[in-house]
Write a protein that binds this DNA or RNA. Structure first.
Lengths: 182, 182
DNA sequence: CATTATCCGGAACATCCGTTTCGGATAATG
DNA sequence: CATTATCCGAAACGGATGTTCCGGATAATG
């Protein structure tokens, strides 16, 4: 006879996830597990009971945001105007990275746990870029890989320029640079 | 009577500096002092005898390259055509950061040891950008701070895109985006 | 309320890294 | 060659961080 799961257990798991999200957003992948535990009002062992490894915790904490990002980008590929889709992908990806520093860290450090994200981004960009080339709205000499690099570069800016406005202006600047000259 | 300095001492100091340059270029500021010592064929204590702290070692190892960079950028400010000067600053700074990962790390992590570099870059950019605005070659809505951010962003690209050619193309892309539309 | 499976937190362990210590080796001097 | 100031490397220290242990607490069950 299997007992019902203890209520403090589920409560703690939720609190750990929340604390992990907060801490990872602030400190990035380098966040200390002890600090996450402290913010959750819990001991370290409790964290490790629910998530066998720090990587597992990170993935669980970022899952929702990552899924949202995946959906938005996948949808942007379907956009009739490929340039609009490209702009959406760039803006939304940069915004996500700016808000969640751990995701940026994972992408730039090529952590194995983020390989799927890399693949998804590459695929989405490859589609949109090809169609933007057909529609003549993207510079011919700009590849999907180039756009990917620019996205990561902009995300790097996000960590140096705290204010939303500056970041958005830089995204506009970059997009201007990518657009085919009329 | 003060004795002459022992020969193994000066030899070791030089070897440590060389090893430090190699290791810092490869691994960035996170380079392990033990690895530097090993490459120099020396014990850790020898490293610390010549350079009281890791920061001191880093500064000594990077001094030559930083001085070169300072000179080139200072000279670029004097350029008659401000746009050319700006391009030189951007290209040379990005190239320096790409080659010496530790310098990039120092600049982006706002380490106190690199405050002088920050100040120098800010001053140089401020001058060139003002004159480029007067000459109408730089977009009006782009500030010196913006250019500084773009430089750091491009340097970030340098760490993700190993090949020289891709990096140079991205620099060109960015410069295109900064130039006033004719 | 008694039982007990489940869960909890703090301490301990392992590793990494900057830095210091110290007994022994060695080069400069006379 | 003897002396000794100087230098050397291995080991140890100290702090940070991921992870595990374990004795005690507690919630689910009947």
């Amino acid at each position: 006879m299997t007992r019902r799961r203890r209520e403090d257990s589920v409560r703690n798991e939720a609190q750990v996830l929340t604390a992990a999200r907060e801490t990872l957003d602030e400190r990035g992948l380098g966040a200390d597990v002890r600090e996450i535990a402290r913010r959750a009002g819990v001991g370290v062992a409790t964290v490790y009971r629910h998530f066998p490894t720090k990587d597992d915790l990170v993935q669980a904490a970022m899952r929702t945001d990552l899924d949202g990002w995946t959906e938005v980008t996948a949808q942007a590929v379907e956009e009739a105007d490929a340039w609009t889709g490209l702009r959406t992908i760039v803006e939304h990806t940069v915004a996500t990275m700016a808000r969640h520093r751990a995701i940026l860290d994972g992408m730039t450090s090529r952590a194995e746990a983020f390989a799927a994200c890399h693949a998804h981004l590459a695929e989405a960009l490859s589609g949109v870029v090809a169609r933007a080339h057909e529609q003549g709205t993207l510079r011919r000499d700009v590849s999907a890989g180039d756009v990917g690099l620019q996205i990561l570069a902009l995300s790097g800016v996000a960590q140096l320029a705290p204010d939303e406005q500056t970041l958005h202006r830089h995204v506009g600047l970059t997009l201007d640079g990518l657009r085919a000259r009329t």
